[in-house]
Simulated assay, not measured.
Amino acid sequence: MTQTTQQLTFEEYLSYDDGTDIRYEWVDGELYPMTPATRQHGRIIFYLARLLAGEIQRLGQAWELGLGDVGVQTTERRVRIPDLCVLTLEQAQVIENIAAILTTPPLLVVEIVSPESIRRDYRTKRSEYAAVGIPEYWIVDLLAQKSSILQLEEGFYDVYEFTGQASLVSPTFAELTLRPDQILRGI
């Protein structure tokens, strides 16, 4: 992923439009283009979105999903765009008619690892998401054929890795039955 060399303020980032469909994360004033997803990547996002939307409805929660269209401000000079996030109704209302950048932590974020995002998803975003207090962070790793659920405890993430047909354990969706092999196939 190649960043721009142009320095932007947060306000400039919020209104930035280069006339393309490219999404950008904002890191220390620079734009980092998000690599377009593979078809498998997209299939996993939509599979998880359908599953989580159904679970949100079943639980009767006033939560909404962001599908790569909601940013999370992780520091004064950084905005990350997770592949999927679960936000409260209040958060959704705040960003209804403005740039969709959360300044409060969503309930859960999901990142699908791609070859160019390994370090960013496992290290950089992990520390940033923990610092802003995101209680649950899922990492779906197609390359390693595993899914990890990170739970925030006293400012740090405890990591629980799942492979094959082992059932994932999510604090946010405690009754959800989901296996890594299902996620990785997107079915």
Rank of each mutant, 00 (worst) to 15 (best):
V94N: 06
Q93P: 01
E111L: 02
E111M: 03
P82S: 01
I81M: 08
L102D: 03
P115A: 07
S114L: 12
L84M: 05
A144W: 00
W138N: 07
Y122P: 10
V109C: 13
T103V: 14
L142H: 08
P115L: 00
Q91V: 02
I98Q: 15
V113G: 04
P82L: 03
I98F: 01
P135D: 06
E96A: 11
L102N: 06
V86F: 02
Q91Y: 03
P106M: 03
S117G: 06
K146L: 11
N97Q: 10
Y137G: 01
P82R: 00
R126Q: 14
A92S: 10
A92H: 08
Q93C: 00
W138C: 03
E90L: 06
I101K: 05
I95Q: 05
L102S: 05
S127A: 15
I101Q: 03
S117E: 04
K125Q: 15
T104V: 07
A99M: 09
R120L: 13
T104A: 14
E90Q: 12
E116R: 08
C85R: 00
Y137F: 06
R123C: 10
R119C: 12
L107A: 09
D83K: 00
T124H: 12
D141E: 07
S127G: 08
S114H: 06
Q93R: 10
L143G: 05
I118N: 04
P135C: 03
D141A: 06
Q145E: 12
S127T: 15
P115W: 06
I139D: 05
L107D: 02
K125R: 14
